[in-house]
Design a protein around this nucleic acid. Structure first.
Length: 211
DNA sequence: ATTTTCAAT
């Protein structure tokens, strides 16, 4: 059932191609998700897990991650031994595309039942968010409502990913042209998208969507 | 100025 996670490190070229935050991202018909899973095991101790995934077989990478969640986060749900509290996790994603509308909805639903799971999503590019009324925009707002912190990746985030997830063989991260300008532009766009919307709360939003 | 998008051929 659970197959292997992708090999631990991402080839340099692949990382650059897929995470490049260019305005017209031609040919990025894949989405990569680099993750860090932080598990709180005691008042003062944490364990880390990290890796990356790519969408496969028509399954968006976010949903693929949810499939692996049980393996990555033992004790996330269920009650374990008597008196044992559920463990708390902080998960950080670095995604080449922001989530599509359906993934956002499903994630928001899932997280609303997982108070012991905190999710932060950094995105390189915004997926289908050009139209004012795009469902993807609604989806991002729902994620925010569900407590997910969504941020556009900046230089320091690309740098961190390079150091953490890429088979860099001693090479330093070299920013591409316009990395900064693109990041600023996308951050402004995301900020506008995430302005509060009319719907009162998440439940009403789900109802609206017939869920 | 215009271009793309978790493909489908």
């Amino acid at each position: 059932m659970i197959t292997k996670l992708d090999s631990v490190l991402l080839p340099r070229k692949k990382f650059i191609f897929h995470y490049k935050n260019v305005r017209w991202a031609r040919g990025r018909h894949e989405t990569y998700l680099c993750f860090v899973v932080k598990r709180r095991v005691g008042p003062d101790s944490l364990t880390f897990d990290f890796g990356h995934l790519r969408n496969r077989n028509g399954c968006h990478v976010e949903m693929l991650f949810l499939r692996y969640l049980g393996a990555l986060c033992p004790g996330l749900w269920g009650y374990g031994a008597a008196g044992e509290r559920r463990l708390s996790y902080s998960i950080t994603w670095f995604c080449s595309w922001s989530p599509c509308a359906n993934c956002s909805i499903r994630l928001a639903q899932f997280l609303s039942q997982m108070p012991n799971l905190r999710l932060r999503i950094f995105v390189s590019r915004l997926y289908f968010c050009d139209m004012e009324d795009s469902r993807e925009r609604d989806g991002l707002r729902m994620l925010k409502k569900a407590g997910v912190q969504i941020t556009v990746m900046t230089y320091k985030d690309f740098f961190y990913c390079w150091q953490t997830f890429v088979a860099r063989k001693q090479s330093n991260f070299k920013a591409w042209d316009e990395l900064h300008q693109n990041s600023v532009r996308l951050a402004r766009k995301l900020h506008r998208i995430l302005q509060p919307f009319e719907t009162e709360d998440l439940r009403d939003a789900f109802k609206l969507l017939g869920l």
